[in-house]
Lab assay of single mutants.
Amino acid sequence: NLAEVVERVLTFLPAKALLRVACVCRLWRECVRRVLRTHR
């Protein structure tokens, strides 16, 4: 699944970079939201 791969990669990025990549597309924005939720 593409979303799972994107989420896996996003887990390695710092928070500032996550906010930046959330603007790329809807899929990435949803993935960033899930990554941020799991880090809390």
Results as ranks from 00 to 15, higher is better:
R29K: 11
T38D: 08
W28T: 10
P14Y: 12
L10F: 10
L10E: 00
R37M: 06
T11Y: 04
C23Y: 13
K16M: 02
T38F: 14
C23Q: 15
R29H: 03
F12I: 04
L27D: 05
K16F: 07
C31G: 10
F12D: 05
E4Y: 13
R37F: 06
T38Y: 10
C25F: 13
E7P: 02
E4M: 12
A17F: 12
E7F: 07
E7K: 13
E4L: 09
T38W: 14
V24C: 07
L36F: 11
C23W: 14
L27T: 12
R20N: 11
V35H: 04
R20H: 06
F12V: 08
R8F: 02
V32R: 04
P14A: 08
A15I: 04
N1T: 10
F12K: 04
R29D: 01
C31L: 15
L36I: 06
V32G: 02
L18S: 09
C23V: 08
C25L: 12
T38S: 10
W28C: 08
V21M: 13
T11D: 07
L13I: 14
V6F: 07
R40Q: 08
A15Q: 15
L2E: 00
P14G: 15
E7N: 07
L2M: 10
E4F: 11
H39I: 15
W28L: 15
R26V: 00
E30M: 12
C25S: 10
L19I: 02
E4D: 07
L10I: 12
H39L: 15
V5C: 04
P14L: 07
R33V: 03
A22R: 08
T11C: 10
P14D: 11
V6E: 01
K16L: 02
P14E: 15
V24T: 03
L19M: 14
T11G: 14
A22G: 08
E4R: 15
R8N: 02
R34V: 05
A15N: 03
R34T: 03
L18K: 15
V32C: 07
L18M: 15
A3W: 15
F12W: 12
R34G: 03
V9T: 02
A17N: 07
R8A: 05
R40G: 10
A15W: 06
A15D: 02
R29L: 02
K16A: 04
V6H: 00
L10Q: 03
L13W: 09
A22D: 04
V32A: 06
A17K: 14
L18I: 08
E30Y: 11
V6R: 02
L19H: 13
L19K: 15
V5Y: 01
V21T: 06
A17R: 12
R34I: 04
V6D: 00
L10C: 08
C25M: 14
R29E: 01
C25T: 14
V32Y: 05
R26W: 00
R29A: 03
V5E: 01
V24P: 01
N1D: 04
V24D: 03
A22E: 07
E7D: 03
V6A: 06
V21C: 10
F12M: 13
C25V: 10
T11N: 09
A15G: 09
L13G: 06
L19R: 15
R26T: 01
E4G: 13
R29I: 04
T38K: 13
H39V: 15
C25N: 10
R20M: 12
A22F: 09
